[in-house]
Design a protein around this nucleic acid. Structure first.
Length: 286
DNA sequence: GTGATAACCTGGGTGC
DNA sequence: TGCACCCAGGTTATCA
């Protein structure tokens, strides 16, 4: 599942290749991708536009076009954004949602098996800031993301810390994989209420988030299922998971078996020894 | 305002 | 072999 490291990997690969290129042809094959706007409208917006830069915000890939127009894409569950040099190299049409042909003949393909991925054209930097501002919180790899920022976001939250981490408005870019990895690194149980974490736990969680995401970027992301980088290659982070998907295997820290549970409605991996469960609250007697 | 849950979607896995 | 059903999960809408 593409999370921050996977999207950042794609951005790193594509940014230098697309900068300064012009989109000479845009084809949107799946109306769901750009709904409620029609594919024809979006194709018209993109055709002839020069690409100024390719950025990222949380899990969003942001293609900046001329005149402060932005194509904001989200890969969701199974989306891939592929770079193809020749028409013959294109994969089958089965899951192809969007094709952008550049003036140098190269192609960008949005391929998405489950059709959750989206693309939105936003006009103006103010509208872009508003669009992202209501969906995405602080960037965890920015210098401005400090333990204080994390503590402020968690303050008063009764939701389990796993749900807190998955909420993109609290911390941008963390999904199911890296939430598990960050919590294991921080030795925090996923069901602990976010607002009840102590100062030293917030600091450990901050470090865990940053280190887990950096590890993912260093390994070009995790290819559990569908994720491929811009060149169609698999990442290798799945070989380096400390806890995620390791049910029944010995914990890398204590050797006890890793357990699987459900937290925030998601499959969640935990070491019950290294990540102690929250104590049950006493019920007051009448 | 907050937290929980269903729905969206499709392919793979499982059981019969 | 074929069919029905369940599950995976990021985001959004809805409800309590």
């Amino acid at each position: 599942m593409p999370e921050l490291p996977e999207v950042e990997t794609i951005r790193n690969q594509l940014a230098p290749r697309v900068r300064g290129r012009t989109i000479v042809e845009a084809e949107v094959f799946d109306p769901l991708w750009c709904a409620p706007r029609s594919p024809e409208d979006v194709e018209r917006d993109l055709r002839g536009e020069r690409i100024v830069a390719l950025g990222r915000r949380g899990k969003y890939l942001v293609m900046e076009l001329e005149d402060e127009r932005f194509l904001v894409m989200h890969l969701r569950m199974t989306g891939n954004f592929l770079w193809v040099a020749k028409p013959d190299d294109e994969p089958g049409r089965a899951h192809l949602r969007v094709r952008l042909v550049l003036d140098d003949g190269n192609r960008l393909l949005f391929v998405d098996q489950r059709r959750f991925g989206t693309g939105v054209v936003v006009d103006g930097r103010e509208e872009l800031d508003a669009y992202l501002g209501e969906r995405v919180g602080p960037e965890p790899l920015d210098d401005t993301f400090t333990p204080e920022v994390l503590a402020r976001a968690a303050r008063g939250r009764k939701a389990p810390v796993k749900a807190f981490l998955l909420d993109q408005r609290r911390v941008a870019g963390v999904g199911n994989i890296y939430a598990d990895e960050a919590l294991f690194r921080a030795r925090i149980h996923p069901l602990r209420p976010a607002g009840r974490l102590r100062r030293n736990e917030i600091e450990r969680l901050h470090t865990g988030i940053v280190e887990a995401l950096q590890a993912g970027i260093a390994r070009q992301g995790a290819s559990i299922d569908n994720y491929r980088d811009a060149d169609g290659a698999r990442g290798s982070m799945q070989d380096e998971f400390l806890i995620h998907l390791r049910e029944g295997e010995p914990c890398v820290r204590c050797g006890r078996p890793v357990a699987k549970m459900v937290a925030a409605g998601r499959g969640t991996y935990v070491c019950r020894h290294c990540q102690p469960a929250p104590r049950a609250r006493r019920v007051a007697r009448p």
